[in-house]
């Protein structure tokens, strides 16, 4: 069982989360210990160890089919792990899920509602099942959350006629219908227009301000980079990197980017010099060089090899590059 992350990247345990929110209850909002899930012969998730500190906004990154949703479902107690254990707000799941889930809001695998009911009726049905909501508050809570996600005008239309974005907003509303300590959002921006995406970002920001822990899974890297304090990267069912965002980006900056048309030659030359070199994911032809000789020496090597160096800069690693590299190495 290989549980370790790739050697190039330290899977340092996550530091306690941001300034806000650490006062709330358990220091760890969600935890996975050696989680493994097998569907028939397919291993969906393998040996995942993860801790989500209270108050953090964790971006869960990974291509489609990398196991994000399966991991989330196991954390919520919707699926039993084949092996390993999960914990939610200090309670083992699924055994004690009933104690944790009232304080957890979730949007998993897209919004699920009944087409013959209006958005409001659908939410009322969800609200009726919420343990922490008094019966007398249901109508108010539903009205308020509809406003919060920007669906007040469409609340009394049938769900059948909703656009993809409106459905997504309603799903978000169901997750936020009562104040939560933990909100889990699986691909919340799917189908949303830019304004919708901004709204989701705003809501995540509000939740973070309010001290809640948020787990957002997304394949949109910019999304995660803009809103998250922590990141977990999944690839083919295993966790390839976790950590808080600044230190992850820091760890990824020990190299330089060489902008050049002679990509192949550059890679060859740098690898001969003992460096790790690979093509940049950016649109311009460029090569990322890591662990090589110091920059001046490297550049002179390249020039001597006949590479036309248009530009050489210290790599300003963004999440996109980090992600590309991680998934390329393991994939």
């Amino acid at each position: 069982m290989t549980t370790s992350s790739p050697a190039t990247f330290s899977s340092a345990t996550l530091a306690p989360g941001g300034s806000a929110g650490s006062a709330v209850g358990a220091p760890v909002a969600a935890r996975a210990i050696g989680l493994r899930k097998v569907f028939g012969r397919t291993v969906a998730v393998e040996g995942i160890d993860l801790e989500v500190p209270s108050g953090a906004v964790l971006g869960m990154l990974g291509p489609n089919g990398s196991g994000k949703t399966t991991l989330i479902r196991m954390l919520l107690g919707l699926t039993r792990p084949t092996a390993g254990a999960a914990e939610l707000l200090g309670h083992p799941v699924p055994e004690q899920a009933a104690w944790a889930l009232p304080q957890v809001g979730a949007l998993v695998e897209g919004p699920g509602f009944h087409p013959f009911l209006s958005g409001r009726e659908n939410l009322c049905r969800v609200a009726a099942a919420e343990p922490l909501l008094a019966s007398s508050e249901i109508a108010n809570a539903v009205g308020a959350v509809l406003k919060r996600v920007g669906l007040a005008d469409a609340a009394d239309r049938r769900y059948r006629g909703y656009s993809l974005g409106m459905k997504q907003r309603l799903g978000l509303a169901a997750a936020l219908i009562v104040p939560r300590r933990l909100v889990v959002l699986d691909e919340p921006t799917n189908g949303l227009d830019p304004a919708g995406t901004r709204d989701v970002r705003r809501i995540i920001g509000e939740l973070h301000e309010g001290g809640a822990t948020v787990i957002v899974s997304s394949h949109l890297l910019a999304e995660v980079e803009a809103t998250c304090t922590h990141v977990a990267v999944l690839q083919a069912g295993t966790l390839v990197a976790t950590g808080d965002l600044p230190s992850l980006l820091e760890a990824g900056t020990s190299g330089m980017v060489v902008v050049t048309p002679d990509v192949e030659l550059t890679i060859r030359t740098m690898r001969e010099a003992g460096a790790t070199a690979y093509r940049s994911e950016s649109t311009e032809p460029a090569v990322v060089v890591k662990d090589g000789p110091p920059a001046p020496e490297a550049i002179s090597l390249l020039v001597r090899a006949g590479v036309s160096v248009h530009e050489a800069r210290r790599s300003r690693a963004n999440l996109e590059e980090l992600f590309a590299r991680l998934t390329e190495e393991t994939g």
Binding site: R31, I33, G34, T82, A83, G84, A85, A86, E87, G90, H91, P92, E95, Q96, A98, W99, P102, A128, A129, E130, P131, L132, L133
Partner: peptide
């Protein structure tokens, strides 16, 4: 494999105390 599963599970359970109060339900 199963033994390992049980031990991690047991460890996870050991860390958390069984809640004394019943969980809240609608």
């Amino acid at each position: 494999m199963t033994a390992m599963t049980e031990s991690t599970r047991a460890a996870a359970l050991a860390r958390t105390t069984v809640p004394t109060a019943a969980p809240r339900h609608a």
